[in-house]
Amino acid sequence: MVRSEPSAADRHLLRILERNGLKLSPYRLERWRTAGLIPRLGPHTLMRSGDSKIHTPATAVLVAGLATCAPLCRTHGDLALLAFFNEVPVPPDAVRETLAKAYFPQHAEAREQENVHLQRIPVEHRGEHGPEYDWAEAAAASDMDDYEAAVRQMRDNLRRRRDLATASRTELDGRVRGVLIWLNMPALPVHDNEFMADLRAAMAFSGPPVNSRAAWLLAAVCHSQQLAKRSETCARERLENLLAVTDEELGALREQVRESLDAMWFMASEGRSRHFPLETSAHARLAGRMLAEWTTARQAYPSGSRPAQVLVDSLHSLWSLCSTDTVGEGRAAFERRTQPPHRAP
């Protein structure tokens, strides 16, 4: 394939990047342009400098940001997401397209995984407690596979109970699975004393947070859905919600997702880390899926809700439910040791 010579504006831009330690080939610059990561050459992207036309400062900032993130990415999609979540001004259309590609295959895969677990429920038991229970059982099975650290913490916490001190791994896993089934149901059976005793022990809210935060995080994510207005959605509706996000909203949603990741990371890291290091393409895909999910999920919560606050409110709700018949620290003390710090402005 014959490659055309770079324009004078592109050559000028590449020289500026090289002077700042960012070496970029004209071919890669053109590939980014073809992929929609940088705008096409035109009156709105060029400015006059003496007798020549050069790229606007906005384009230079965009290309410099992409060049900084590029060594960490293998695909244009990964580059678009990693740059976007690191506040590089990637064109909104490219961001929306990449968000859809990051979210929908993974969403379909998760639903298929749950369906596989659903089919493993013996036929004679399906529908015994209603279809919602069947799906909750399938979701719990997926959680058991996907969140090993949280399951291990719940199992260890349950073993601290005197009557379960010598319980087998199989029995403890069964109790963890029971906790997760009801966390995936529309509501918790708060009047079931046996279940609430298991939930209280698995969460270990009365003790120090060491070795329990991953369990808290998984439970809070599940319980937050129980606090929301439940409704059925389809892939088409979710795509429409994502595409309807305005350019201005994208920036606000990015900050909300970063805030939520910080809250989750603070919890999962046992309080050791305040901010989630969004520095890899895998992390960018995770953040992208969260953003795409929130464009639909936010409709189930009061207007203005932020995902980080939803998570923390869910954790506090669980603490309240697990503390109704115990004497311990008050809500204010619990909040002080569990509330993640706000992101710096």
Rank of each mutant, 00 (worst) to 15 (best):
N241M: 07
L227F: 05
M185G: 05
W216G: 00
S49M: 12
F104C: 09
T246D: 13
A282F: 11
T59R: 02
D93F: 06
R298E: 10
R236T: 15
E30L: 04
R230K: 14
T280R: 11
M1I: 14
H316W: 13
A94L: 03
A332L: 13
E18F: 14
L29H: 00
T34N: 10
K23M: 15
A235Y: 09
L239D: 06
D156Q: 09
H55V: 07
D192A: 07
H283D: 10
Q309W: 03
A332G: 05
V116E: 15
A94C: 08
Q339V: 05
S25W: 07
L41W: 03
A252K: 15
E270A: 11
P131K: 05
D145Y: 09
E237M: 09
M154P: 00
R120P: 05
G36Y: 00
P189Y: 10
H283I: 05
A141P: 06
S317V: 01
E18I: 13
Q106K: 09
Q153F: 03
P340C: 00
P340Y: 01
V2W: 02
R274W: 05
S142R: 13
L82W: 02
S303T: 12
A58P: 05
S320D: 13
S320V: 10
E124M: 13
E30P: 01
G178D: 03
T246A: 13
D325I: 12
E237S: 09
E30I: 01
Y27V: 14
D93G: 08
V63T: 06
P345M: 10
Q226H: 10
S206A: 15
M267D: 02
E171Q: 08
A219H: 05
V90D: 00
R169Y: 13
S4P: 09
R298M: 08
